[in-house]
Computed example of a mutant assay.
Amino acid sequence: MNNCTTVSTFFLWGFSSFPELRNLLFVMILFSHVTILFANLSIILAIKLSQNLHTPMYFLLFSLSCSETCTTMVIIPRMLADLLSESKTISLPECATQMCFFFGLASTNCFIMAAMSYDCYTAIHNPLHCQTLMTRKICFQLVMASSVLGFLISLCITTMIFSLSFCDSNNIQHFFCDISPVVHLACDYTSYHEMVIFVLSAFVLVGSFILIIISYVFIVSIVVKMPSAKGRYKAFSTCSSHLTVVCIHYGFACFVYLRPKSRDSFCEDMLMAVTYTVLTPLLNPIVYSLRNKEMHIALRKVLDSVIKFFSQLTNKISLNI
């Protein structure tokens, strides 16, 4: 420790191990990022402009789309810049800010999904009283509680990590400041820090997942008692989109954050991180738009309105010319 040189900047090693794939990765990730922004923005506009989508389920979906859009903005633009740049350095404050916002937004997504599972339960258990049980005020409070709790946990983890001493190595074996690659560079990282980070991460992932499982246990118990097959199909289709997104999101996240870590696993974690920073936000709006007829109709109306607007704008420009 006495001979250590304090680190002031980190080097995001990321995809530097694959220089021959840099251009291909840039094009693929840029295309994915544009698609994510377009898809989530379309869902946000469809919910905002369609009166028949002003329901608790779609308000929570609106919040999830906003949160996921912000999550990708924290990671992907920097990733794209690093793919084009030779200098991949990031200062400690920038690294801490990126980690805090990413984990805070990711935690918010988990808690919003838990709230969505409860909404699915109320929609099936009391379909006639769903609007009174899940009012707009209650939905707003659930979203705000998800955000506050998510960022409090993220702030605790980030503060603890960046209160450690970093010396000697400053190469982060990742394309962003994720928790495990950063803490393993600390000189005074102990089993106590590892336990605290694991417990807080487990609280977010396992805690919210348990709430989702409890909701679906009640949902299944209600659905199997329904006399008609048509009623059972309609009930399951109500929550199928949410259940698909939950399986994708938690499958990848739990693999990365809840399994034992070693320096040799960072490469695997980096590849898996691509799935939950790029692939999952890309799949979520696609799943919700394709597996939901109301959303599909609303998106088509929004697309028609956009085409009509640009058509009128083009005509006005041509007349002025």
Score class of each variant (00 low, 15 high):
T9Y: 06
M113K: 07
L290F: 12
I157G: 01
L243T: 09
V246K: 01
F11D: 09
Q98Y: 00
R78F: 01
E268Q: 14
S165L: 05
Q173W: 07
L319W: 12
L319C: 11
A298T: 02
E268H: 10
S147Q: 01
W13Q: 11
V183S: 05
I112P: 02
C120T: 01
N23I: 01
A298L: 03
M57A: 09
V206S: 08
G231S: 15
E94L: 05
T275S: 08
T277H: 03
S191K: 14
I286A: 09
A81K: 00
N3V: 13
L92R: 09
V183F: 09
C4N: 13
S17V: 09
E294S: 14
V274P: 08
T35A: 14
C70L: 12
S17W: 12
S117I: 02
L164H: 08
F101V: 10
D82L: 00
A96Y: 00
I248W: 15
I43V: 14
I213V: 13
C139I: 14
F209A: 10
V27I: 14
I90V: 10
M195Q: 12
F218D: 11
E68Q: 05
L258R: 07
T35E: 09
L61I: 13
L211H: 00
P77A: 11
S63M: 10
V206H: 04
L152W: 04
A235T: 13
T89N: 03
L243A: 14
V220N: 07
L283R: 04
L61K: 10
H174F: 15
V302M: 03
N315E: 04
I157K: 11
H193A: 04
I36R: 05
M1A: 15
I44F: 13
C95P: 02
D82I: 00
